[in-house]
Simulated assay, not measured.
Amino acid sequence: MRKLRNVLYVTNPKSYLSRDGESIVVSVENQELARVPIRNLEGVVCFGYMGASPGMMALCTENDVGMCFVSPYGKFMARIGGNVSGNVLLRKRQYAVSDDEEASKKIAAYCILGKLMNCRTVLQRFSRDYPDMVSREFEQNFKRLSEGILQIRAGTCGSLNELRGFEGILSKYYFHSFNDLILSTEPEFSFENRSRRPPLDRVNALLSFSYTLIAADCASALESVGLDPQVGFLHRVRPGRPSLALDLMEEFRPYLGDRFVLSLINNRVVKADDFAVKENGAVLLTDDARKTVLQAWQKRKKEEVMHGYLEEKMPVGLLPYAQAMLLARFLRGDIDGYPPFVVR
């Protein structure tokens, strides 16, 4: 199994990345701030607009280190990749399956099942730990979510679009109960519904930011096993969108994203004044808070979890790679179905 290495998160929007030998140099206004050997990294995520030198980008591609550019507040802008790796026959198979709606629906159902089962586990753990705080509405949403999982398993959704629509309905049931999971008494952390582009409250700002981090890790994992992150099954092909990375991250949203956000809020790692509210209503993390969240994210990725299908303990940060590997095995025909990661 692959070993977990670090991801370099460059949070200063004025940073410029260059190469010196086998190291990445981070500078601001021609002053060196950091120097990181490439051998210690598996990815670079740059929150800013200053960019990087061609030599530095070549260093990343030569060492299979994924590089992603996002806006200072987490919106995906671009990804740098090197020579296409992996078996060309695997990618040909991926493209053929993506063009086949029925075959795509099969994989999409696995991705959605993984996501919804992990959503249910998040709610289930809350009801177990805080039984006195479980409302009747919470119980109803949990029941609807459980019934929906059974329906998807039974294959009652006719088309791929119907499956997507049904998943959207079940996700709303889950998020209708999300505010119950927030133990903070600060009114600023009240959550009503999911909003994005831009996030309109503090909880949504954290959710969007964490999902951006997960998507970047999923894209790197897919490339490392020879799959094309742009060509998906649940999310259809759209220029500039990493559709397969979005497919893969669905099962990680509740476990890696939502639980991480809840821990940040409930453990008071972030506070109400760690956010800036823009004139258009967008709510964004401040620079210092973004660094705090990234430090907590790196720590979280080093924690270990048992992978049910592989029956192996691994760092949380390797889960996207493990699932990308299993997806590649399924497309090759080595296993009968794609087993999504479901937390126990």
Rank of each mutant, 00 (worst) to 15 (best):
M1P: 02
R2D: 10
K3E: 11
R5Q: 05
N6H: 10
N6L: 12
K14A: 15
S15T: 12
D20L: 15
D20V: 06
E22N: 15
E22W: 04
I24C: 09
I24H: 06
E29M: 14
L33F: 09
L33H: 14
L33N: 08
R35I: 11
V36M: 13
P37L: 02
R39D: 14
V45T: 10
F47N: 11
A52V: 09
G55H: 08
A58H: 10
T61I: 14
E62G: 08
N63F: 02
D64L: 10
D64P: 03
D64F: 13
D64N: 12
F69D: 03
K75S: 12
I80E: 05
G82N: 03
G82E: 02
G82Q: 06
V88K: 04
V88W: 03
R91S: 00
K92W: 04
Y95S: 12
A96D: 13
E101R: 15
E102H: 07
E102L: 13
A109V: 07
G114I: 03
G114C: 05
M117L: 14
M117P: 01
M117S: 13
F126H: 10
S127W: 00
R128F: 15
D129V: 00
M133F: 03
E139F: 09
F142K: 06
S146D: 11
E147N: 08
A154Y: 02
G155F: 01
T156D: 08
T156M: 10
E162A: 12
F166C: 03
G168K: 05
G168Q: 06
S171G: 15
K172P: 01
Y173Q: 02
F175E: 01
S177N: 00
S177R: 00
F178M: 00
D180I: 09
L183R: 14
P187K: 05
E188S: 13
F189W: 04
R194L: 04
P198I: 09
P198K: 07
P198T: 03
R202M: 15
A205V: 03
L207G: 02
Y211T: 05
L213M: 11
I214G: 07
A216R: 11
A219T: 08
A219D: 08
E223C: 01
P229G: 11
R241T: 12
P242D: 01
L244I: 01
A245D: 06
P254S: 10
L256T: 00
F260Y: 12
N266I: 00
N266S: 04
K271A: 14
A272E: 15
V277R: 12
E279P: 02
N280C: 08
G281L: 08
V283G: 08
L284C: 10
K291H: 09
A296S: 15
L318E: 09
L319A: 08
Q323N: 04
A324T: 02
L326R: 10
L326N: 00
F330K: 06
I335P: 01
P339L: 09
